[in-house]
Design a protein around this nucleic acid. Structure first.
Length: 341
DNA sequence: ACAATACCTCGTGT
DNA sequence: AACACGAGGTATT
């Protein structure tokens, strides 16, 4: 096929300075490692230390940061890659889209938005720089449908395989091939359920395809994005009507894709923390995480932390996850791969 | 409303 | 080497 010049992950600001642009943003406002590798999204990888690469708005990006700037670079699509909808975008629209992507859709909240409150987790002095991503609603919804009764390492693999199988190829950097996240149409296709099952989705394959089909047939392809303008409770209950979407997944999508900073996803980690540190009475009688308890925890954090409770929850979760992963790392034996002769 | 169970899969740990 | 266990839950009884 076409002359595919081999591209590499860019991992140096100084080597090709003209390829990089920056946004003023101190580390105290945003730490890429906390935001991109704490279970909010599953498709960013730190292939080189401090350089994070992922797909955003149909392009491959690498991000890094210095003390007071976030730096980004965008890779061109490889020759011969199908241009799909780009075909009918005129130049103006295309430029606007590019500008929009670069300036407004960086994977962080506008740093100033969140200055108002001083939630408790921030006072503890650790995990400064956790932010909530503003993700694409489709990717966010279907990624989190995959998280139920699952663990992160498997979730990551599932999503990666789904993108390879159902997404559009963008380019290859070193040995890594990048794809877009599958469209609603691709997820709703007739043979998708079987494909996903082969890719190890288990019973979630059914949730994915049926949710995609329900959205397209009952609402339309722009519906998810339109929920950004709906009130929190309305968006939440609408999402909960989809197969495979319960309170927790709905709150994840509300918080991380639909501009609902008051949404507080209560997962096992947050539930554990809530019982241990905030609402010990919930632990008595080993009650399970019922709908009532779920709401009680969310309401408690909302009164404690105000309208950005969801962000504070992300800080909690990130801290718990770091601890969890840290202890797992310590337990992992080092260097037992090859017995020596 | 609440509790109990099954559910795909696949590291780990026993 | 077989087997149980649980992982950022949800749907069904």
């Amino acid at each position: 096929m076409g002359n595919s010049r081999r591209m590499c992950h860019r991992a140096s600001l100084s080597a090709c300075a003209s390829l990089w642009r920056s946004i003023p943003c101190p580390r105290s406002e945003l730490r890429l490692g906390y935001v991109l590798a704490c279970g909010q999204s599953f498709r960013w990888n730190e292939w080189n230390p401090e350089y994070w690469t992922g797909v955003l708005d149909g392009r491959v990006w690498t991000l890094t940061q210095t003390d007071d700037h976030v730096w980004y670079t965008v890779y061109s699509k490889e020759e011969g890659a199908s241009e799909e909808e780009d075909g009918f975008l005129n130049t103006t629209k295309r430029k606007r889209r590019q500008k929009d992507a670069e300036e407004k859709r960086m994977p962080c909240n506008p740093p100033k938005v969140i200055k108002t409150e001083e939630p408790e987790p921030e006072k503890e002095g650790r995990l400064v720089g956790v932010r909530v991503l503003r993700q694409d609603p489709t990717e966010c919804l279907f990624a989190f449908i995959c998280t139920s009764n699952n663990h992160i390492s498997r979730i990551t693999g599932m999503i990666e395989r789904a993108c390879s199988s159902l997404g559009r190829r963008l380019c290859q950097l070193d040995s890594v091939v990048y794809y877009t996240f599958p469209t609603l149409e691709a997820l709703a296709a007739g043979d998708t359920k079987a494909k996903l099952q082969e890719l190890g989705f288990g019973y979630r394959a059914k949730f994915v395809t049926e949710s995609a089909q329900a959205i397209l047939s009952e609402h339309g392809c722009d519906w998810l994005e339109s929920l950004r303008l709906a009130p929190y409770e309305e968006a939440r209950s609408a999402l909960c009507a989809l197969p495979g979407v319960g309170a927790k997944v709905a709150d994840c999508v509300c918080l991380m894709a639909l501009d609902k900073p008051q949404a507080v996803p209560v997962d096992t980690h947050v539930w554990k923390i809530a019982k241990r540190d905030y609402l010990p009475q919930l632990g008595a009688g080993n009650k399970s995480l019922t709908g009532r308890v779920y709401k009680e925890i969310g309401d408690y954090f909302r009164t404690l932390w105000g309208p950005y409770a969801g962000w504070a929850q992300s800080v909690l979760f990130c801290s718990e996850l770091k601890k969890f992963q840290g202890s797992a790392d310590r337990k992992k034996p080092v260097g037992k791969t090859e017995p020596q002769t």
